[in-house]
Amino acid sequence: MMSLPDVNALHARGRWPPPEGPRVAIVGSRRPSPYGEAVAEQLATDLARAGVMVVSGLALGIDAAAHRGALNGGGITVAVMGTGVDVVYPASNSRLAEEILAGGGALVSQFPDGTIPRRQNFPARNWTMAAISDVVVVVEAGEGSGALITAEAALHLHKEVMAVPGSVFSPLSVGTHGLLRDGAGLVQNARDILAVVGRGGEVLDDPLVPPERLGFALRPERDGIVAHLSDVLALSAADIARKLQLPVSEVLGRLTALELDGAVRRQEAGYVRALRRGKERA
């Protein structure tokens, strides 16, 4: 077990310690599927609206989605960093860090100012994240993911661990489904979490908006392709071309048009359906 730093003596930028109230950590893969990213963001928004402080690690992927979601919900969010609080890593999250501070949240770290990203510092950061939270929610974590360290720390610290289920086809579900099998709480919407932190009575108008209701103005001839795409598993242009019996050059072009509109996203292995508009990304 790690030796934990004194929570009140953490290095901080922004308001620290934060106001009293429940704190929920949302952690997960740095390279999530659109599904995982959408879930993390929506959960964070709903928790923030219910007055819950959202804790995460300011990494790419689920972490960034959680912070962003909390800010969208008008809430306070805290980033626990594995670097000095003056070193935002990755640098592409600098704007997000500023927004966290502007929203009344904080950047905290057990490492002194100027500490650069070092691999061995991140597990300790994950412990700290668990230590300052009441509940740890894991959204998409592959085997060996850092989010699983946070979950393990939470168990050791007698904090609640919860997980969001994913597709059984996705490698990103290996970690979360393992947690669920081992007794982690099932998260299907923010209410499940609020019940655990004793805010079960909070009213949420639209917990986890289903993706259909986010609606894209799709040109009719392009709908055909989107219907064949998954929001979890990437399909290549070749896969889709084969299904639709169309030349791959044409499918590639139509996918690019959808990508321009923000309706699909391209990953290394192929294309996935986007659940949010591409433009909303920070």
Partner: peptide
């Protein structure tokens, strides 16, 4: 436009 879109796909 379809030619431009294909090119952007690469």
């Amino acid at each position: 436009e379809r030619h431009v879109l294909e090119a952007l796909g690469y």
